[in-house]
Design a binder for these strands. Sequence first.
DNA 1: CGTGGACTTGATCAGCGTCAACCCTCGTGG
DNA 2: CCACGAGGGTTGACGCTGATCAAGTCCACG
Lengths: 245, 245
Amino acid sequence: MGERIPTRHSLALSPSCNHCSLSNLCLPLAVSDGDMGRLDEVVNRGAVYDRGQAIFQQHTPFRSCYAVRSGAIKTSVETAEGDYQITGFYLPGEIIGLDSLHAEEYAGSAIALERSSVCEIPMDQLESLSFEIPTLQHHFFQLMSQEIQNGQQLSLLLSRKTAEERLASLLLSLSSRYERRQMPPTAFRLPMARNDIANFLGLAVETVSRVLTRFQSQGLATINGRSVESLDLEGLHSLLQSPGT
Amino acid sequence: MGERIPTRHSLALSPSCNHCSLSNLCLPLAVSDGDMGRLDEVVNRGAVYDRGQAIFQQHTPFRSCYAVRSGAIKTSVETAEGDYQITGFYLPGEIIGLDSLHAEEYAGSAIALERSSVCEIPMDQLESLSFEIPTLQHHFFQLMSQEIQNGQQLSLLLSRKTAEERLASLLLSLSSRYERRQMPPTAFRLPMARNDIANFLGLAVETVSRVLTRFQSQGLATINGRSVESLDLEGLHSLLQSPGT
DNA sequence: CGTGGACTTGATCAGCGTCAACCCTCGTGG
DNA sequence: CCACGAGGGTTGACGCTGATCAAGTCCACG
């Protein structure tokens, strides 16, 4: 259990953001080579979390955002009334915690879906740094506004789409994100449980299960537990066109 | 139609953000008196839009965010497939357009729900200015992360709440926001049509109508068209407690 | 005073949630 | 090595919430 296993892809020991294999997805893409040293001083690289462990928890003091380095993370918010909503799934190169920047406490929790490593970005230091590196401030504005848009897309999906469309959207989103990470877009492992998918998409677990088997029988994908194969990207896309107009 | 009517509350001619009656809600709260002049140079104050007019439109070149000065604004996104989702209602002192900061084009549209005036904030200038005024950059980070959280709350509402809970949430949100603006929290006018409410909350217009009349018959509010009176804040709040635990 | 859009009300219907049973997989321990 | 149990996943039957369709009313406007 507590054994130390080197993270795969040998990410673990990379001494600088500069040499990280994710440098074209992550913060480094906003920082010139000359300023990279400054970034390295601020970022704490490579903490590892096991499946189920929390990177941070709602209502604890806010310190840092985190860049996902390997694995996969889910973020969620919980209301006083006990409703629980997963707000996103994050893959390597993506940043979590941006929704808490304005507060003293984390606005939500982040849990590792599988053994994952993350890089800590202490935000007080980063904020100072971004006074000196204009492109960095600009990049954070971009990241956050992108995050707002993702939320809007999610809202749209939750209020207007059918169960099939929701699942199709999720599969296509994962597919394209894996593709950007040089991984096969039509065959991958789902890092999250059916439960998580259901919660994220605002459906019941049973519905998720049913729709996925329906996809299977329609030849849109081969799905076995968490493994997805031969995704029919075209077919899924055509599900999203509402028959309007 | 083209007649010039002075905006109410005599906001129209205020020469500086400093003297604006919204200065404790809007950008000025992040700027010291000494720096206020710099802010004034950047902000274009007081353009007026009639009901139905667009402050900006999706897919047009992004230039500026806008602070609502009087009236009320709705923002929305439209997908390629023709789905249309209202993403928020904005009251005086609130900022619109933050979701587009990262892009060349506006990610959504903003439409005046009633005759409204807004102050334009050209973002290239503001971004430069925020290098020099640390509290301003910080404030924008805060605004944006608040906006992300609003989106998460909306997602939660759309995926977990019943029609009654959604309406109750909206009424309570408006109520508390009016209160912060020194207006009565239990009696106000709804600036938006039933259609807009329905779209925003992911319901059919008919459902909105039915639920509102049900509220009325339960004594939770007196609702007549767009006028809301004697809101029972306690009662509405108790609707939100899911009977869990 | 008349017209069109916003709003309400009623009847019907279906998508998806809920409840319940079952299965499959994998890790644990005898 | 196998038995067991627990958690995740699938499948089926049923009912409810809210969408849809269809009239009808109210109101603001010209």
